[in-house]
Design a protein around this nucleic acid. Structure first.
Length: 593
RNA sequence: GCACCCAUAGUUCAAUGGAUAGAACACCAGCCUUCUAAGCUGGUUAUGUAGGUUCGAUUCCUACUGGGUGUACCA
């Protein structure tokens, strides 16, 4: 435990004792940071909370508590004061500030962590892209949420597995295969047939030939294939035939399938590596799509489910107050939920996990509830083991307001396009006179920080109006602002190191407000992990940087004064906390910019 | 129709039931002979409507208005 945590625990303990003596059975004390510094450093509203239960005036209760606490003579407390109507406000001294700095510097990368989830194993399913479409900003938000939750849970002691589902079969993939076969021929001599393709592969383009990224190439194939499918009934027949042949393990079809999917995976992995994705396992649909049927049969024999007249199988979810859903089609084929039941069981079995999380958009909310209920009915797991982490839409900010992205309107914004856009702006703007290689590397990091931060700073369930121009601007509440502050501190520390200046926390009165903020980082981490929303971290970093920059402009750090070692320690601690926060957000720091 | 999600400044976003609702962008006025001006300082602007619970409500409950999503054999 840090000294700050020890102090909080001590204060809490004393207050619990006090309220128990007054007659509260099991008092719950919360200590908060007051909004205004004149209200002290820590405050408690417990006197207000228990005034009614005790039948006493909060003024009397609070002042009693203050006398009780003063008698304990706690070293870090400079004063305890009453504030109307019943607050107890603690004022901390500079010894406390020194303690915080020593904590941060001693713990380094571990500062802010905890054991909240120690011994627990979590599985986070996130970012399951369609193989037939390039990923857009919605996928990016999913990825950033999934990965930030992963890091937060690990920071809080959990063991975490990340996985994803690859929906690599079915009619959509068949359309993609058709689109490739008919529209990516180098010339008309080539016949549009799988047999011909198989023996004349060089007559088809690959993405490099036409200078397209693999995911864009795949999207184009799919869009053209889907259009043909819709407009031409003979194509529809062929595409459906491809599905049947695939199911029957037709060798040539399977080769074409593997060929186009190779491009898909290249595209997906390229983008996801760029943004820092991690998957420990990917579940490929073709490997498990038949397995769910056994579970449905099981539920049928134990009368959990019912068979309809036409042969389809239906849930019974009245106990869960949910609408029923079909688990197996009348022709005996499976649906998404059928496969998800099997997947959930396989995950439980493979990982021996306590908690399963699905990071999936809000439109799947009911389907998720149904899945969880059915899994509980089948004994796969308990409702409490399952969590759907939903998130708001990423739309575009337009002149007329928020607008959902739509592929039909051509308003889908691809992840790589946004990052590249930001990168080019930086290269043409602030970095235009720099050494080229260095500038490109820096611009990549800054643009990633800008785009990631613009999504991560928003509370998870809120819709985000993504402004392509604003997200690539580098001023104000942005990731670049955080990185700039970090680099700025680094520059000072570098200078101090070259000059051999001492870095040493002291009990003095400078930069105290900033240092006291550092003590709250651990609380912010807990708030983030409990709400599955990293935006608390992002907002905290913005405030911290703002505080630091104000101090920086007010006071010179390397002033050669008696306080200089302490100031340097404060600067170092701030940079450490910025770094720890950014690591949780998945943003790389830059040492210099 | 029913269910779920959302509503804060001109705009984009904050605010574990707490004290005077915070930032940023934009606009205006200032600050580089001093550690990185991608920065700092100052100025104008907001809780959709009506009730309820509470010592206290942007936060919880109810109704309404407005926007979004979903609603069984698609993926």
């Amino acid at each position: 435990m840090t000294k700050n945590e020890l102090l909080n625990a001590k204060l809490k303990q004393y207050l619990i004792e006090y309220f128990k003596d007054l007659g509260v059975k099991s008092p719950e004390i919360n200590l908060e940071k007051p909004a205004l510094s004149e209200h002290g450093d820590i405050t408690s509203n417990s006197s207000l909370k228990y005034a009614k239960e005790l039948g006493k005036n909060p003024f009397v209760i609070a002042n009693g508590a203050i006398d009780y606490l003063k008698a304990k003579e706690i070293a870090e407390i400079a004063d305890v004061k009453f504030a109307a109507p019943g607050y107890i406000n603690f004022y901390l001294n500079s010894k406390y500030v020194e303690d915080i700095l020593r904590d941060v510097i001693a713990l380094g990368n571990k500062y802010g962590n905890n054991d909240l989830f120690k011994g627990e194993k979590w599985v986070i399913e996130h970012t399951s892209p369609n193989p037939n479409k390039a990923m857009h900003l919605g996928h990016l938000r999913n990825n950033l949420i999934g990965m930030s939750i992963t890091r937060l849970l690990e920071f809080c002691g959990a063991e975490v597995v990340c996985d994803s589902v690859d929906n690599n079969r079915g009619i959509a993939i068949a359309k993609l295969m058709w689109g490739f076969l008919v529209h990516m021929k180098k010339n008309d001599r080539a016949q549009t047939s799988v047999e011909y393709w198989h023996s004349h592969r060089e007559e088809w383009y690959n993405p490099d030939d036409i200078n397209q990224l693999p995911d864009v190439f795949v999207t184009n194939c799919y869009v053209m294939g889907a259009t043909d499918f819709k407009n031409d009934s003979s194509v529809e027949k062929i595409v459906r035939d491809i599905v049947v042949k695939w199911e029957n393990n037709d060798i040539l079809i399977r080769e074409l399938w593997a060929h186009v999917l190779k491009y898909s995976y290249e595209g997906i992995n390229r983008t996801l590596n760029r943004v820092g994705n991690r998957w420990d396992k990917t579940w490929h649909e073709h490997e498990h799509y038949q397995k769910g049927k056994e579970y449905v049969e099981l539920g049928l024999t134990s009368s959990i489910f019912t068979r309809l007249e036409d042969g389809a199988i239906l849930t019974n979810l009245t106990d869960y107050n949910l609408p029923d859903t079909i688990l197996l089609k009348k022709d005996g084929t499976s649906l998404y939920i059928t496969q998800d039941i099997a997947l959930t069981a396989m995950k439980k079995e493979l990982y021996k996990a306590n908690k399963l999380v699905w990071v999936i958009g809000p439109e799947q909310s009911m389907a998720m509830k149904q899945l969880f209920a059915v899994c509980e009915q089948l004994g796969v797991g308990k409702l409490n083991d399952f969590t759907h982490v939903s998130y708001g839409y990423v739309g575009l900010k337009t002149d007329t307001g928020f607008k959902k992205m739509s592929s039909r309107d051509g308003t889908v914004v691809l992840i790589d396009d946004v990052i590249d856009n930001a990168k080019n702006k930086i290269l043409e703007g602030p970095l235009k006179d720099r050494n080229v290689d260095e500038a490109i590397e820096l611009a990549e990091k800054l643009s990633l920080a800008a785009v990631k931060f613009s999504l991560l700073k928003v509370e998870r369930t809120q819709d985000v109006a993504f402004d392509v121009e604003k997200a690539t601007e580098m001023q104000g509440d942005t990731g670049v602002y955080i990185l700039y502050t970090y680099a700025r501190i680094n520059s000072i520390l570098r200078k101090a190191s070259l000059a051999g200046f001492a870095i040493e926390p002291q009990a003095v009165d400078t930069a105290n407000d900033i240092v006291k903020k550092l003590a709250l980082f651990g609380v912010v981490v807990i708030r983030s992990v409990e709400s599955f929303s990293a935006h608390h971290i992002a907002q905290f970093l913005l405030q911290l940087c703002s505080d630091f920059n104000s101090w920086y402009n007010r006071e010179i750090i390397l002033d050669g004064s008696m306080d200089q070692p302490h100031k340097l320690a404060a600067a170092k601690a701030v940079s450490q906390v910025i770094k720890n926060g950014l690591v949780l957000l998945g943003i790389d720091v830059v040492e210099k910019m």
